[in-house]
Amino acid sequence: MKVPEELKYRETHEWARIEDGVATVGITDYAQEELGDVVYVELPEVGRAVRGGEAVAVIESVKTASDIYAPLSGEVVAVNEALADHPEKVNEDPYGEGWIFKLRIADPAEVEALLDAEAYRKLVASEG
């Protein structure tokens, strides 16, 4: 299970890469493994304002549907259109080509509340 050091995490298994006030969001390697083969990703609309903790996307596997929560408040500025034809990228490359959406961060202070890699590893260990 990969947990890149440079990322921030939410306890609901989303990761966020923060660059220049924009957070790129996806689901963790652990989450994609638990879900199994991803068959569809329901993406949010670009321009939508979201609050941290709000359900903004849905990931479907054959037998489940899981909400993806915004780790931070902000505005959706991009979504990964490539997932429409290739949802399997979430399984193959969860931290890279499998990213889901990008948020312009409204309140940088919220970043502090996210987990770092070590804390997320501990969380997963306690769930497993």
Binding site: V39, E60, K63, T64
Partner: peptide, 13 residues
């Protein structure tokens, strides 16, 4: 197919 739209998986949604 596409059962994730349906009540036995999505329940209230």
């Amino acid at each position: 197919a596409l059962s994730a739209r349906e009540q036995h998986i999505r329940r209230a949604k």
